[in-house]
Computed example of a mutant assay.
Amino acid sequence: MRTHPDESPPDSEIDGHSNSDHSNMYPDIDPAEHGPVGGPVNGPMRRIKVRDGIRVVAFTGTLLGHITSERPDSLHWTELSIYRKEDGLFIAHRVGVSCVAHRADCSAIEGKNLPAVADMKSDEFATEDRRPCPVCRPDIASEAAADPASIRGETDRHWVGICKDAFSLISALHTNRHGVRSLSGLASAALSQAAEHDAQIAAALNTELEV
């Protein structure tokens, strides 16, 4: 089970942290090839809790935009949400998502300390929703039932940016790859969606950038 980005799971469900290394698994996404999941919640302020690594970040705000790169057969994908706090600050929350399960002795996770799927937080994928690693190909349900510690799950990677204004938000969403600083397609799509609901973001996106 995964929580929609505008919901606030209990503290006990969001204090985990990813140990799997997905840093090179999320290519830039063409905004024309995907769209929002659920769309922005441009309504009253509400209490929201998200993860930032091992920390919990709690605030009162509203969801301006949410974009995902998930496809029907995805094993890994990225989700990006943009919020506005009641005091005007912007919050960006990016999640590198994985639904993969491995055998404990899988060569693909050698040296990584992944949790057993039976012990994972309830805002991660449940055992029955996991997909088998293409390397070790476990029979997840039956092997986990026979020995809960034998099946390990990749966990999500969470990042939060707290930004004082729209220009800082845009800057925070840039990535640096091989010395080239750029805005990914996923981030561009999320900002465009958020701009439909926030005049400050719209103005910042339409401001000429001097380099």
Score class of each variant (00 low, 15 high):
171 S>Y: 09
102 H>V: 03
131 R>V: 15
167 F>H: 14
1 M>Y: 06
115 P>W: 13
24 N>W: 05
86 E>N: 10
17 H>R: 08
34 H>G: 13
197 H>A: 08
185 G>Y: 02
118 A>F: 04
122 S>N: 12
58 A>V: 02
26 Y>F: 15
184 S>K: 08
53 G>E: 00
70 E>V: 13
205 L>C: 07
189 A>D: 07
54 I>N: 08
72 P>Y: 14
83 Y>E: 03
94 R>I: 09
145 A>K: 15
106 C>M: 01
60 T>W: 01
86 E>R: 04
84 R>L: 05
74 S>F: 04
2 R>Y: 05
185 G>V: 05
62 T>P: 00
48 I>M: 03
76 H>Q: 11
188 S>E: 13
120 M>A: 15
178 H>F: 14
188 S>V: 05
56 V>P: 00
10 P>L: 09
166 A>I: 03
15 D>G: 13
2 R>Q: 11
189 A>S: 15
114 L>I: 02
178 H>A: 11
84 R>G: 00
48 I>L: 10
42 N>H: 11
41 V>F: 09
63 L>W: 02
120 M>L: 10
152 R>T: 05
178 H>W: 03
180 V>K: 13
126 A>P: 00
14 I>E: 11
128 E>I: 02
93 H>K: 02
51 R>M: 11
63 L>E: 14
127 T>S: 06
163 C>E: 15
185 G>D: 06
171 S>H: 12
75 L>I: 05
83 Y>H: 03
183 L>S: 14
3 T>G: 04
142 S>W: 00
35 G>S: 13
151 I>H: 08
61 G>C: 04
193 Q>W: 05
76 H>I: 13
154 E>T: 08
23 S>A: 10
68 T>M: 03
168 S>C: 01
136 C>I: 07
164 K>L: 11
103 R>E: 01
124 E>N: 09
200 Q>H: 07
85 K>M: 13
124 E>P: 00
163 C>L: 04
37 V>K: 08
171 S>R: 09
21 D>H: 10
82 I>K: 06
75 L>A: 14
1 M>K: 10
128 E>T: 09
104 A>M: 06
77 W>L: 03
19 N>T: 15
158 H>W: 02
15 D>H: 12
12 S>Y: 06
68 T>R: 11
158 H>S: 12
25 M>L: 15
80 L>W: 03
45 M>Q: 02
55 R>L: 14
74 S>M: 08
30 D>C: 06
190 A>C: 06
32 A>G: 06
205 L>H: 01
152 R>H: 04
8 S>Q: 12
66 H>W: 05
186 L>T: 11
116 A>W: 08
130 R>N: 03
173 L>D: 02
49 K>M: 10
161 G>W: 15
208 E>W: 06
145 A>D: 15
107 S>R: 15
196 E>A: 12
146 A>L: 09
197 H>Y: 13
45 M>C: 00
28 D>A: 05
22 H>W: 10
4 H>S: 13
